[in-house]
């Protein structure tokens, strides 16, 4: 990791926000041409596009803070897995359509309040990227919330699949609101929010929405975390070679 004079906590914040968006964007891009209905194919591709756009803003900013000439593309395509700072949730495989929607829902429900809180950051560039992204995340959450409720409280088959997805993915959701020393330092400097407050909001929201969806979360499940500090699951190791293949094979290639 770079050790210049730059603000390392601000750099980490930009990588965490950018990598979450990038990896989830890459994951859902894989649905393009495969979704169950055309409208959902387009919706998934659009959400992926928003997320990848947001990733380029955050990673571009991270490169600026670092001040060593790395661009958003350099950071996306030329870092190794241990250098990625996304949470474990977003790198989990797509599974079926229910899994993909559940992962999106668990992420969106954190992403939106997080972005809204970041609009109050003491760094005006963070606030600007967050304000832009929050408008898009509002849309994403509306869609994923609607789907999780409809499919959870739907047919026996759709309910079973959504409950399966929740059982698998729920332990990963905890990492989103679990503060480490970087989050605490960011909050102390006014650069980022108190993650505890976001967590309380998240819990209240989830209890309300999962009840509507007739789904049950295991609140006692141990949290699976590590992505924020670079300890990733095997899943990221399979995702990166595909995402980075072109830039790794043809360094410096441009359109």
């Amino acid at each position: 990791m770079a050790t210049g004079k730059h603000d390392q906590t601000l750099f980490e914040l930009s990588l965490r926000m950018g990598d979450n968006a990038l990896i989830l964007g890459q994951r859902i891009s894989a649905w393009c041409g495969h979704a169950p209905v055309l409208e959902e194919d387009i919706a998934l591709a659009n959400v992926a596009l928003d997320l990848i756009g947001q990733a380029s803003l955050w990673l571009g900013f991270a490169g600026e803070i670092e001040g060593e000439g790395r661009t958003a593309d350099n950071l996306a395509f030329l870092r190794a897995d241990r250098e990625f700072r996304n949470c474990l949730l977003v790198e989990q495989p797509n599974g079926d359509f229910g899994h993909t929607l559940m992962r999106q829902f668990l992420f969106d429900a954190w992403h939106l309040p997080m972005l809204k809180a970041l609009t109050l950051s003491s760094d005006e560039r963070v606030a600007a990227i967050a304000a832009k992204s929050a408008k898009e995340a509002t849309y994403h959450l509306e869609r994923s919330e609607d789907f999780v409720i409809r499919l959870g409280d739907g047919s026996d088959e759709s309910h079973r699949r959504m409950q399966d997805a929740l059982d698998v993915l729920w332990p990963f959701a905890g990492e989103l609101t679990c503060a480490d020393e970087i989050d605490v330092a960011l909050a102390d400097k006014g650069l980022g929010p108190d993650l505890g407050a976001i967590g309380a909001e998240y819990k209240e929201y989830m209890e309300r929405m999962l009840k509507k969806a007739t789904l049950t979360a295991d609140w006692q499940a141990p949290i699976r975390k590590g992505g924020k500090v670079g300890d990733h699951s095997e899943a990221l190791g399979h995702l990166l070679p595909e995402m980075q293949w072109l830039q790794r094979s043809h360094p410096g290639a441009v359109w």
């Binding site: 409208e39 959902e40 387009i42 919706a43």
Partner: peptide, 13 residues
């Protein structure tokens, strides 16, 4: 509304 997302990011179906 048939889909919140359309042919471009700015449009819905």
């Amino acid at each position: 509304e048939t889909s919140r997302f359309g042919s471009t990011p700015c449009k819905a179906h």
